[in-house]
Design a binder for these strands. Structure first.
Lengths: 331, 331
DNA sequence: GATGAGTCTGCAATCGGTTGCAGTTTGTGT
DNA sequence: ACACAAACTGCAACCGATTGCAGACTCATC
């Protein structure tokens, strides 16, 4: 059995209260007794029982993370960031995966909320209202999106799209296709908006081809429609979609970047390995997880400041140019 | 504030003990009072506080999962499986990522062990002795490997390699190269062993080219050595390595499968998207996570049976033939 | 030497449940 | 009608910590 605070107290010849204080409020106890306690702690390898502490303090030292799909490399990186940062603060992370089922989110968060101090929620599809309802149960920080009234960390999609378009326009492209992700996805909306602005500012033209699943298959499905637009370049919702495009274009004998330039978003590991290697807007994924944790812990430590209004984090993407973009073909 | 057992008791007009029993030992309480309690629970939305329960029962209802790298799709899938199965049993999962640092494992498990009932440990590199030491702290189930004296779930690597070799030999290959992963990795050892046996049984010849990092870069680094062996086919430690091979072979102008056939192991999502699509031994990754959880929970529910000797799970791979393997070239 | 302030330390209550034991009720057999 | 067992239910202790409050001690000051 693990040592309890009483064991330590007995060994050090003091009361449990003193041990407790020696550990959490060192200033309140005499240096010599503090040393005796420290020695006893050391000797017994004592570590406070978190459940017992949580019972009285109301804090569990644990946060939750809810993501749509752990097998998606984007969310895996996010999780890695959350996890690393949490450990740095000596906070444990419950990870839950909704299996891309937005309906499961509310229930999951509710179940988690009893066991954690707060949750980092990655919910690209839920509406603002649904999120607000979820946030009733516990302290929530959104990640990879924003919603009115809730704290969150998101990417500046407008800026990322501007970089992509500037790159393509500089290469001589004038007509740019856009393969959107799920219509309800926050990122789809913001990227589409950013593209329209950027394209307009640079006197180019946007050819949206609709909404597709944010997957390899989605990209395969979109490819022929992209070709039909007559665009010389295409921006895909994310890298998985872009890689799907690449595959279908290849099998149709369309050269990338000779006939068509392709740009993705995310910069997942796979993008570097694609053929041709994918030009993409790199999003700092782990960083988003880290910041979300910082935001959450800050809110928990200081609920007053949290009440003043939701805090936000904003992250910027960076265009990584590889081999899937090149000069527009001379017609 | 959340409702406590006392609130429920008051509303139902019974004592807290009765409420507790009505929920956990329904047989012990009268049907009508049980109904009254149930109604009160419903009305208040009561859920027992796990920390409080854990304090007295000694069970936290939580397990830990330690993996080398969440961003590696193999481990991500594993995590997904663990997580799904645990939720099915209403058990929460702490996920921790060692960032490929085997030295961190022991510390992590020790830290986790105070907060969980047991841990699923994925530690490909640690020695049997190190694992035994770690298992002192808490109930441990290994995954993706075995070690004497410890329960675990692992793949039948010999069988997987046999399938791969049989496929290659049927295609006319006689000299098969083998790109190993980290020398200390359990899977490297078992796959190498399985290959030697299979090759011998089928009167072919094995050309090992040494040990490489289990990554895309590792595969790139191994490619030229593979070519130098004069083999007409190569089995790679895993899919990432195989995809690295593909990339380097492509840039050297070596045709796959025309000049050289390539086989991977794992069947990660990326393999289907590689060019050519990768022939690989598919390992049921989520299944491994699920079984590990079942094993762990069974040990926790019935410590006696656990003492009888470690239980093991064994999973089989399945050869998925795609486009990276073909008939051996006529010399 | 008594007084008062200041520092430490310990007592005991508390968090929200679970469970051994004893008491109450109900039902059965005679 | 009575004894006795069976079936429920409640009391109170307990899990391992934290913390308000009060007591004990030290030390300086008058």
């Amino acid at each position: 059995m693990a040592a309890t605070i009483r064991d330590v107290a007995r060994l050090a010849g003091v009361s449990p209260s003193t041990v407790s204080r020696a550990l959490s409020l060192p200033g309140m106890v005499n240096a010599t007794t503090r040393a005796r306690v420290a020695a006893a702690v050391e000797q017994l390898g004592y570590e406070p029982n978190r459940a017992a502490r949580g019972l009285i303090t109301g804090r569990t030292g644990t946060i939750g993370l809810v993501v749509p799909d752990l097998a998606n490399p984007f969310f895996a990186s996010l999780t890695k960031g959350v996890q690393a940062r949490a450990r740095h603060h000596d906070v444990a992370v419950f990870v839950a995966d909704t299996d891309e089922d937005p309906a499961a989110e509310a229930g999951l968060v509710r179940a988690l909320s009893k066991q954690v101090d707060g949750v980092v929620l990655c919910s690209p599809r839920a509406s603002d209202e649904e999120l607000a309802a979820i946030a009733q149960d516990t302290t929530v920080v959104l990640v990879n999106r924003t919603a009115v009234g809730l704290p969150g960390v998101a990417y500046d999609n407008e800026d990322g799209m501007r970089q992509a378009v500037a790159h393509l326009v500089a290469l001589g492209h004038r007509r740019i296709a856009w393969v959107g992700g799920p219509a309800t996805s926050w990122s789809t909306q913001h990227r589409g908006f950013g593209l329209r602005n950027a394209v307009e500012a640079l006197r180019a033209e946007l050819a949206p081809v609709g909404n597709f699943a944010p997957t390899y298959e989605g990209g395969m499905a979109a490819a022929d429609q992209v070709v039909a637009t007559g665009a010389t370049a295409v921006v895909a919702y994310n890298d998985l979609v872009a890689i799907g495009l690449l595959a279908r274009l290849h099998s149709r004998g369309i050269s990338v970047p000779g006939d068509l330039s392709v740009v993705g978003v995310d910069d997942i590991a796979m993008s570097r390995m694609a053929r041709p290697a994918l030009t993409t807007v790199r999003l700092p994924k782990q960083e988003a997880g880290r910041i979300a944790v910082e935001l959450l812990l800050a809110m928990l430590d200081d609920p007053d400041s949290a009440a003043e209004g939701p805090k936000h984090g904003e992250l910027h993407g960076e265009l990584i140019v590889r081999d899937s973009t090149g000069p527009a073909p001379q017609k």
